[in-house]
Amino acid sequence: MPLAPSFPVTLRTRDDLRIDAAHTPSRGAGDLGIVLAHGFTGSLRERSNRGIAHVLSGFGGVVAFDFRGHGRSAGRSTVGDLEIWDVEAAVRHARTIGYRRVVTVGFSMGGAVVLRHAGIVGGVDAVVSVSAPARWYYRGTRPMRQVHWAIERPVGRLAARLGKRTRIMKGVWDPLPLAPYEAVAKIPPVPLLIVHGDADGFFPLEHAHQLHDAAGGTAQLWIEPGYGHAESAATPDLVRRVGAWAAARSRPQDGVYSS
């Protein structure tokens, strides 16, 4: 089946960065917009993300974008800090083009960012975080030690720029951004879904449980058997279930969110 057509969009963030984006019109509910946030070194143009956007467009229109420092977007990656303004620009665009309900769906770093965006900025009707870390500086797995090498070492940043078209900031965060699990506590009563695989090689299940616990019992937690990490491991079936959840949970019933 051919992928649903998408149309290029240029977004402008609150801190005046140009963000490359694309809009895939809805093949489903006309009033639902889904903002799709990729993982670190990812892109809206990757095959996995284009497939996810196609499946989600069966439930609502999709605004996908490249985070700052990624692909054709301007700036440098701050690895989850200022990226909340990239999400905010995409949410604002979705509202501007007529979507009355907007749900953010993020994978890995994007999963952390949509949590922080919902907790700090707000303005969304539901949030889905997939394969996200609960806290910063986690180095307990080999893939995450490799990620830190790419972020912290000059040769690592060069490799990310040449190999993945990802430009990463130099130096360290100052001040330290609010951690994802801390942001989660600020999200209720907005519906929240946390999705994590029991075969995730980057972040073990303790991250998903920490995020779920931080929501104080208001979030849903899906532990997916055999699911690895982020977009590359996401099956069409999982994405369809996420789309169905977003469509159902973002619709208030008598002024109260469904549970």
Score class of each variant (00 low, 15 high):
H70F: 07
G80H: 01
A21R: 03
F203E: 04
A132V: 08
V113D: 00
A185W: 04
D16V: 12
T141M: 08
S250Q: 04
R100P: 05
V242F: 04
R100W: 01
S108C: 12
G60E: 01
S6P: 11
A132Y: 00
P133K: 10
V91S: 05
A160K: 03
F7H: 14
E224C: 12
S232V: 13
I223G: 09
V91T: 06
M109A: 11
H196V: 05
G111C: 04
V155E: 15
T166C: 13
I34R: 03
E46D: 11
M1I: 11
A159C: 09
P189Y: 10
G61W: 02
D66R: 02
R45M: 12
G51V: 02
L193M: 03
T96N: 14
V87D: 03
M109D: 01
G163M: 11
L56A: 06
I151E: 05
N49S: 11
P180H: 05
L192D: 02
Q146K: 14
K186N: 12
A89R: 00
S43H: 02
P8H: 05
T10E: 14
P143D: 02
D254A: 15
M144L: 15
L221E: 01
D16W: 09
S259P: 13
V91D: 00
T10D: 13
P189Q: 04
G171R: 06
G98V: 09
V172Y: 13
S43Q: 09
T235S: 15
W173C: 02
I120L: 14
A132H: 03
S131R: 03
F67Q: 02
Q253H: 15
A150N: 11
A53C: 06
G51W: 01
L32P: 01
R251V: 15
L162M: 14
D16T: 10
G243P: 09
A179F: 07
Y99K: 04
A74L: 08
S129A: 14
I194G: 06
S26I: 03
Q253W: 10
L238K: 13
V103D: 02
A112E: 00
D200I: 08
G30F: 07
G75I: 06
G75L: 02
H117E: 08
W85D: 11
P133T: 07
G217Q: 09
G71H: 05
V147Q: 04
R139Y: 11
A244F: 09
G226R: 11
H38Q: 12
S108R: 09
H70E: 06
K186S: 12
A89I: 05
D16C: 13
F7N: 10
Y181K: 14
P236H: 10
V114C: 01
L32R: 08
V105I: 13
V55R: 08
E231P: 05
M169S: 14
I223A: 08
S57H: 02
D31W: 03
H70K: 10
R18Q: 12
A22N: 03
A112M: 07
G226Q: 05
W173L: 06
Y257H: 13
D15P: 06
W85Q: 11
A246V: 10
G60K: 07
L211C: 07
E231S: 15
R251F: 06
V63E: 00
A118E: 00
P188L: 09
V79Y: 12
V147C: 10
V155P: 02
